[in-house]
Design a protein around this nucleic acid. Structure first.
Lengths: 126, 126
DNA sequence: TGAATATATGAACAGATATTCATATGAAAG
DNA sequence: CTTTCATATGAATATCTGTTCATATATTCA
């Protein structure tokens, strides 16, 4: 009895007890929303940036390619911890790596990463 | 015995067993790194974007001001869950609110939010 | 081939976090 | 002022996540 009836289906649960629901507002908003999976991917992307260790790694790689060991030393982290985080960063396509003998050098994948970080910095440092 | 001695102090622990540490690389990287607290704040900021529910809320608010109840209904969330997330978004200064009678309308705080999201979208939808 | 070194990875644990449930607050209408 | 309605909030819980520890993999050098 809230103006939403019939063919909606899937989940016919109430989510709030309010009676003042603006149905047309809701529909308009829903129309301009990206697909659920895009939203999910976007959240996942930001989640990767949302950790101090990973942000520090990304900043370290901002200007130069660095090997795992130097990263660990620079950031006061365990080699293992760095490796784990680098794996996450690589899976998210934020960094890439190349092998040089025994060492593996990591570097930022592209300029998207730099731009996203730069945007965030603007908000933080204003 | 790794070339780093004397006045460093604070934490004199080894973080990896590598002997091939490039000391000058490390120093250069450390110089161009922002302060720890800036990095922390930046990570905290992205952490807020790094959750599906909050991203969905932000997208819903992208084009229009919406009250809590409509948000809940639109996003298939509990009113309580929405409120909790809105609080986090507000504390991070990503949204603001105004009261209109019994309802509270939320809206994006500024264009930083839109730009950060837009940058993320570029990476995700490419 | 074998030893040494740099990196990767799996399991376990501790800390963080999103949701739910119950309830409090605050505005509005009678 | 009392009731009703919209929102806020505290506590509890289940889930997720980052680090550590132990160990595996892979490359170089003797």
């Amino acid at each position: 009895m809230n103006g939403k009836e019939g063919s909606m289906a899937i989940q016919d649960v109430e989510h709030c007890e309010c009676s003042e629901i603006h149905q047309n507002t809701i529909e308009q908003v829903l129309e301009q929303m990206p697909d659920e999976d895009v939203l999910y991917d976007l959240a996942e992307l930001f989640k990767v940036f949302g950790d101090s260790s990973r942000i520090r790694i990304l900043f370290a790689l901002y200007g130069a390619d660095i090997c795992v060991c130097d990263l660990a030393e620079t950031l006061n982290m365990t080699q293992s911890a760095v490796s784990h985080q680098l794996k996450i960063l690589k899976q998210s396509k934020l960094v890439n790596s190349r092998r040089e003998g025994k060492q593996v050098y990591y570097f930022l994948a592209d300029d998207h990463v730099r731009r996203i970080i730069a945007q965030g910095m603007e908000h933080v440092t204003e």
